[in-house]
Amino acid sequence: MSAAEYLNPPGLAPAQGDYSQAGTGNPNTLVFVAGQLSVGTNGDVVGVGDFAAQFEQIFANLGALLKSLGLDFSSVVKFTTFLTDENDLDAFMKLRAEAFPKMFPTADFPPNTLLIVKRLVKPEFLLEVEAVVTRAPA
């Protein structure tokens, strides 16, 4: 038996390469979620050139993945965010300030590492967000 379980829940966009959407090790308390991109369930890039649309799609994808695991955003332990343009930093901060209170109504926001990188797997992608979540009982 493998020490890891790899998860590709139905209803999510297909992986954009040779990877799983999430993986967990025994005893299945932490789930490491692959970086989510602005991809719809049909595999098409959503919001080409539109940072806000990509932000919205990415967090919709994260929400769908969490739901498929029987979890919600309160299970997120950590985010890592990748931006491809430092000029999008203000837009990211504004969108996050609007979205996070809805995702985290107790205002217990998880840590986030924010990186600005040269590019992502496809040049159309403006940002990517990966997460670590817990399945441990509250």
Rank of each mutant, 00 (worst) to 15 (best):
G17R: 07
L127Q: 07
V31R: 01
V31E: 01
D108I: 10
Q57K: 03
A131H: 04
L37K: 11
P101N: 08
Q57T: 11
L37P: 09
V132Q: 03
L69W: 05
N112W: 05
T80P: 05
V48T: 14
V48H: 06
L12F: 10
F100N: 06
D50P: 01
N87D: 06
F55L: 01
Q54G: 03
G47M: 02
N42I: 08
L71I: 10
V77L: 10
L115A: 04
K102I: 12
S74V: 12
N87I: 00
D18M: 13
V77G: 02
L114I: 00
P110E: 02
V76Y: 03
N28C: 11
I116M: 05
G17K: 07
D44Y: 03
E56N: 13
D90H: 09
S38T: 03
G23F: 12
A22H: 01
N112P: 05
V76D: 06
T113M: 06
V117L: 05
A64H: 14
L71E: 07
G17V: 06
L30Q: 14
T24N: 07
A138S: 15
F125M: 13
L71A: 13
Q54F: 04
S38N: 08
A52H: 08
L114Q: 00
P10D: 12
E5D: 05
F32R: 09
D72I: 04
T134N: 06
A99Q: 05
P123F: 08
I58Y: 04
K122P: 05
M93C: 11
G35R: 12
V31F: 09
M103I: 06
A99T: 08
A3W: 10
N112S: 14
N87F: 00
A3P: 07
K118M: 07
V33Y: 00
P27R: 08
L115K: 11
P110S: 03
S20D: 12
A136V: 11
Y19K: 10
V45M: 01
L114T: 00
A136M: 13
F79H: 13
Y19F: 15
M93L: 15
A91E: 15
F59Q: 00
G49W: 05
L65H: 01
L83W: 00
A91Y: 12
L89D: 01
Q16E: 15
E128H: 05
V133N: 01
R135V: 08
D85Q: 03
E130A: 15
A97R: 11
V45K: 00
P105I: 03
D108H: 13
E124R: 02
P111L: 10
F73R: 01
Q54R: 04
E98K: 15
L62F: 01
D85I: 00
P105A: 03
D44H: 09
A34V: 09
P111I: 06
L127K: 03
E130W: 02
Y6H: 14
P110N: 02
A13K: 09
F109N: 09
F104N: 01
P137S: 14
L120M: 11
G43Y: 06
L115R: 07
